[in-house]
Amino acid sequence: MHELGITQEIVAIAADRAGDAKVRRVVVEIGRLTAVLPDAVRFCFDICAEDTNVAGAALDIVEVPARGRCRACDVEQVVDWPIGVCGCGKSDFEYVSGDELRVTRVEVH
């Protein structure tokens, strides 16, 4: 249940960025390769935001797919990680996206 700690960090980053203002909306990117469950973050968000300037804010999670370039045939594609196999039959990808775990936008009143 590391999502609780992850969500605490999200709230801390948003609260810090907002300063004295009240946060209205937070946008985060969570990549498919990160072992972070978006639903669990949503579940934790209101609890973590309680009694901070982030309380009542909306949380938008952008789920970033795993995109990889096949090391065998060089074709870049969205990979159904972890079971995805390239059309050429190999499953050795150099990932270009999917490791995102960041706050990209904080809107304040």
Binding site: I6, E9, I10, I13, R17, A18, A21, R24, V28, L101, R102, V103, T104, R105, V106, E107, V108, H109
Partner: peptide
């Protein structure tokens, strides 16, 4: 500045803050 003049202001901070930065 998301403006509705005379009404609510919305400040937007676009950023790239790593959640596990600390």
């Amino acid at each position: 500045h998301g403006h509705d003049h005379g009404h609510e202001h919305t400040h937007v901070h676009a950023m790239e803050a790593a959640i596990l930065g600390k």
